[in-house]
């Protein structure tokens, strides 16, 4: 493992970004924050980006341990997406028209949990965090029924998310890896839907409404390259099992991001 070189890491990173980045309209899992804390006073901040075609995601995250074995975390996540479609029966529009869509979603949340280091240098870290967040999703559909005419329809709603996440991370020299599960309950509320976006699209939104809160099991892994005090990481968070079909609900199944983190305690040492 110690022979893992930066070029190999770069190759793995670019490969994963190419195949993994997915942003969808109704729910996208943000990058799971996998704590790497060993002592009180330790903390880190990091920023992330995910670009896949017309989909762009970004996020900022922070974690801090005020007392030993206890951590707090906060994050903000946003994603924008756009595209075009053209299909009479399966498009949001019931007519044989091309339409374009743009949208965005954001989520701000905080959490609290505990961690416990094991190993000779506490290089293995087990953690359990829980938290709560709130966000919103907006979709905007544009069509041109005639060349000079533009029609725009919107659907938007807010949502809350509760989560519990057990995780395990490991640090070895320049390598930092982690994996975790996130059990999430996503509740939708305050929706304002223009049902002219089409029956199939509206039916999916109704499924969100009637199925709320959705219980989602998400799995994450992260591999990072440490250049103290920085950590460059490739992260993936995937919805591995949900109560409802992901496709029916128009949920993204996977989110891959590249993050740059700054370990604040390592900065102090310098």
């Amino acid at each position: 493992m110690k022979h893992l070189s930066f070029p190999a890491f770069g190759l793995l990173l670019s490969t994963m970004l190419t195949i993994g980045c997915t942003a969808n309209r109704f729910y996208t899992p943000n990058t799971m924050q996998l704590p790497v804390l060993q002592e009180s006073g330790q903390g880190s901040i990091r920023g992330g980006l995910s670009i896949d075609g017309d989909n762009t995601g970004w996020e900022g995250q922070a974690i801090y341990s005020p007392v030993r074995h206890l951590g707090i975390m906060a994050s903000h996540f946003g994603v924008r997406y756009s595209g075009t479609n053209y299909n009479a029966f399966f498009s949001p529009f019931p007519v044989n028209e091309e339409f374009s869509y743009t949208g965005s979603s954001h989520l701000t949340e905080g959490g609290l949990g505990g961690y416990y280091g094991v190993g000779p240098e506490k290089e293995y870290l087990l953690s359990l965090f829980t938290g709560f967040g709130q966000g919103a999703t907006q979709n905007r559909y544009t069509t041109h029924p005639e060349p000079q005419i533009e029609e725009v329809y919107n659907s938007e709603w807010r949502y809350q998310r509760w989560f519990i996440q057990p995780a395990m991370t490991m640090q070895y020299k320049r390598l930092q890896v982690g994996t975790g599960l996130r059990f999430a309950w996503v509740s939708y509320f305050d929706g304002d839907i223009n049902s002219r976006v089409g029956f199939q699209e509206t039916e999916r939104i109704e499924l969100l409404e009637t199925g709320s809160p959705l219980f989602l099991t998400e799995m994450a892994w992260s591999i990072g390259w440490r250049i103290r005090p920085l950590v460059l990481s490739l992260n993936s968070t995937a919805v591995v099992r949900g109560k409802n079909s992901l496709r029916d609900l128009n949920l993204a199944s996977n989110y891959v991001s590249l993050t740059v983190g700054l370990n604040l305690h390592e900065l102090k040492r310098k």
Binding site: G110, L112, G131, F132, W157, Q160, W162, S187, Y188, F189, D190, G191, D192, I193, N194, S195, T202, I205, E206, L208, E209, T210, S212, P213
Partner: peptide, 16 residues
Amino acid sequence: LLLAAACNRDADFNYY
């Protein structure tokens, strides 16, 4: 934070 979460709101979408 937990109290805020406890005020879990029911989905109530307005369709037009």
